[in-house]
Structures are given as C-alpha cells and as structure tokens.
Design a protein around this nucleic acid. Structure first.
Lengths: 224, 224
DNA sequence: TGCAGATTTCAAGATCCTTTCACATTTATC
DNA sequence: GATAAATGTGAAAGGATCTTGAAATCTGCA
C-alpha cells in the first residue's frame, strides 16, 4: 500500500482525489495547507505528493521548495485550466508531473503510476517488504507501520524479519530462539515473550503476531 | 472446495450463477448488497468474489473499495452490455477481471480459473488438508469448516489430526490417550469424551466423528 | 569508568485449556 | 420393558500457559 499526500485548500477536491485513489489501492493523507503537510511528512513515509498550485497563503511553489529541502518524494502538481503554469515550470520548481483540472480518475492513476515508475517509487527489489501496514526497508534496516517510522531494537527487528519470512506459520519459542538467538542459546524461553510484547506494541493495532496456544506465535498476514 | 461470493441485487442472476458454479464444484455464498457481503466476508474465507457493478445503493465501485480495505480476495465484475464500463476501469478500481452479461457457464468458470491461477488462489501445497468441509493449514495450525475459521485448542487440534491420519478407523479411548496424551497419561478415560464433544461442536454439522459403541470413536469421511 | 539503551529474568496476575464430576441420555441384553 | 453399561453434556475446579511490568544484567560507546 503506497501512501499519497494530497495538498489542496479545497475540501471537495481533496475528497474527490481521496476517493479516486482509495479505490485504486492507495492510502491517502490530506492536508489543506503547506503547514499541515509538513507535519504529516514529518511523521509518515509518503510515496508521492499531489499538490494544488493555487492556494491561499503558501502556494504550491513555496510548499514544494520547503518539501524539497528535506525530501525527494515525487510531487505532482494540479492546476486549473487557464492558469499560467505549464509543465516546464512545474518541473523547474522541483515537481515531477503536472495535471490540468478537471481530470479523470483514470488519468490521475495513470500519471501517478508513471511518475512512480520513473522515480523508482515502484521498486520491486527484494530490499523492501510490505506486508499489511508494515513496511521494511532492509537496506536501511528501517521499519514503518502505516507509514509511520518505528524504531526496533536488533532482536525485535530480527524477530519481525523471521516472522515475515515464515508468515502464517506457527513458530515455537524453541524455533525462534534457535534461529534468532542461535543454536547455543541457553537462557529462558520466556525471553521470547518479552520481545513479542515489545514488538506487538511497536507494530500497533493489527494483531499481526498471534499467540498459538501451547505452541508459540504466528505472524498472520491480513486477508488472503 | 473453493468458496465464491456472489454479489448481485437481482435474485435471478444470483441463482443462475450459483447453479453454474455449484455444478462446477464451487461452494457459493450470495449477497444482494454490499452490506450483506461484508458480513459474509467477515465470517468466512472467500476464494473469489463475483460482483455486479450496477446495484442500487452502494454500487460495485464502492463495494470493491470497501472490500479492498480489508482483503485482496480476487474480484470479478459483471456488467451488462452497453453500460459505460470497460475493463480498464474495472481493473483500476481494484478488480481482477471483467465479464459482460450475458455469459455462458463455460466462460464464467474459465474466467474464474484464470483469475485464481493468476492470483495464486489455486495453491496445492501439501501442508494443507481438505476433507469434506474441513480444511487444515498445518503450517499455520489453522482449521476452517466450510470456509469458516474455527479455533481449536491444542488437544482438539491434535485429536482432529490423529483422526484424519486414521480416518475411517475405529479408535479406542486408550489408543487416543496413548498417542495424543502420551504413554504416561494416568487420568480418566472420560477425558476423551469431553474433547470429542467440543470438537464435534466446533466441526459443526457433518457428523465427522462417529461413536463406535463399546469401542471408541471414528472419523468418517463423507463420500467425495 | 559511567551511561544509556538493549536484553534478560522474574513473578504476579490474567487468561485460556484441561480434567473431573454429576447427572442425563442412549444402547445393548435379557 | 427393565436393567446395566456406555456415552453425552454442562458446569466448575484445577492446571497450564501467556501477558505484563519492573527490576536486574549486559553491552556498546563516549
């Protein structure tokens, strides 16, 4: 699930885009001003930003340059027909594409996919995993849940990875200890419980890690 | 046995599809509205959804996006010829295929199989067992009956597995205790009865576990 | 060395599972 | 049918397993 941030002062337009994108399997965040957007970007991992150019207060130009100071997230600009903006300008100020209102849902999704493909946002390498709301960047050893970064300790991270490699399998404490702590671990089985506890807490709602009574634990993937 | 959910406001169409699919070995569930469908999806494991696009109230578009929030179950859309929908749109909003009414039973089944193959719904690993309406995922230690998840306790699960390994054999309480509880079990024979009781209840109708008077119990497999 | 964060241990409390028991019901046998 | 033996069932005691918070220990690093 990719996260898209919509920045537009008009609530109707935000909702319309949210609906379009929601139906196409994107997770939407929205902000009615640059100020609000900065807060969202601070705490969440966005895969793409869609932003109106004409906004009261900070306009798209300024917001874009603010965002660019910290992030290379792809940005698509929206503009009403007749406004004196064109694709060249959009690209000059750091945008990635440009759509003229009104647009069809299909056009929007197509543009988004094109931009993501071009900027590498649709990476299909094995260095990142997404499962439910949990995203893992293996290269950076970084984990986010529903777009929010969470910092995991070494054991928590290894546990999570092992769970995901063996998703939907009931795993005993012995198995987990053997594979993560090593064959020569001699401590208590209860150690696993404590790490499960903290990992559950950090993964938040979702009940990814389920207790299999009398057996161990299981990472259950939503749906299927 | 794969479960297919049919969502269509027209009863005739639902029945027609049910008949087609029933004859091809699918188990059908049907709903006449999105609302009804959500309830079914909540409590059952569906392998595929067939949904009309044009429905009063929530249309296929909306229902699809609701379902997509929780599940990746494959969705095939139905549309009457002439409606202004095309395959591209169906796919954009999260569908997996698209069939124009009227269609033949053969076409429907072919499309279903194609989608299931594409989405990996036709997996045939040896880690799962299907017997009658009972499906067991051994790795996940998960059991479902007629598509409904049931949670078994440790002893119930082991009993069920032992029964299935020795299906159609009359097993004495002593045997069951020896193999499941262990050779050193010293408790009452009647303990088995209680677990049989709860297991029977959880497996629901079907009379899988039969009493062999004076001997013990037997897991009888319904004729395929 | 001293600190901060990570890891492990521990134990009380919560939760769930198992077993037992008493009584109801069914079945076999005379 | 009557009777005894075997099985079904609900409730509740008893056990085992998890969860959780806190404290102790370890580890890497300045």
């Amino acid at each position: 699930m990719l996260n898209i941030l919509i920045i537009d002062d008009e609530a109707d337009m935000r909702h319309l885009i949210e609906m379009y994108l929601g139906n196409s399997g994107f997770a939407c965040f929205s902000a009615e001003s640059g100020f609000e957007a900065y807060g969202i970007l601070e705490n969440n991992v966005m895969d793409l930003v869609i932003m109106d150019i004409m906004m009261p207060g900070e306009d798209g130009f300024e917001v874009c340059s603010q965002i660019r100071k910290k992030s290379n997230v792809p940005i698509i600009f929206l503009s009403a027909k007749g406004e004196e903006w064109d694709k060249v300008k959009a690209l000059q100020i750091g945008g990635d594409d440009y759509i003229v209102k009104p647009f069809s849902p299909g056009e929007l999704v197509a543009r988004i996919n094109a931009v993501l493909r071009r900027t590498g946002g649709l990476k299909s390498d094995m260095d990142s995993i997404r499962i439910g709301k949990v995203a893992i960047d293996m290269k950076a050893r970084k984990v986010s849940v529903a777009g929010k970064h969470v910092t995991l300790t070494l054991k928590e991270y290894e546990l999570l990875l092992f769970f995901i490699e063996h998703k939907n399998q009931a795993l005993s404490r012995e198995q987990l200890l053997e594979y993560i702590w090593g064959i020569d671990y001699t401590g208590s089985l209860r150690t696993v419980d404590t790490h499960i506890k903290t990992l559950r807490m950090k993964l938040g709602v979702g009940d990814y890690i389920q207790t299999v009574w009398g057996v161990g634990y299981k990472f259950e993937v939503p749906d299927e």
